[in-house]
Amino acid sequence: MRFLLTIVAVTALAIPLAAQNNNILRQKELRQQKLKQQKAQQQKMVPLPAPAVERFLQMSPEDRERALSQLTPERRQQVEERLRRLQQLSPEQAQRLQDVYPAFESLRPARRLAVRAEIQALRQLRPIERKDRLNSDAGNFSPEELSILRQVTGIPE
């Protein structure tokens, strides 16, 4: 009788433990599957030309979350929104970004400031106004800077 009771007690204890174990295993499997999907999606994309951003995208979701939590909520939302947009770029757009970003990065800080301001102003305009503004402002920029502005706006010489 005592033997039977022991068996029943052990079985009663073992069943929830096994179920919990099973649950953990399933969660692990799901997480691995998610990571695989994420990696596969990243492999399909043209990599972003900024190494810091690429390193960030390679992080695990937990590390990414930890890093993002260092930002203020507004800044975090802005960064996440922009990252989402960047990840949805067409291969052609991503390729153009690959060409233009290193050129922009190589500019001196003051010139980067000027190019940034010009792009922000050009983005506010309609295509026809953009062309006029770029042509009239051409004298303020070096050939390298103009090439960046033309690549971003898609306005040929």
Partner: peptide
């Protein structure tokens, strides 16, 4: 900062 620049430089 890099994300800001990449977003700004994205072709219009």
């Amino acid at each position: 900062q890099a994300v800001d620049d990449l977003d700004l430089l994205t072709p219009i």
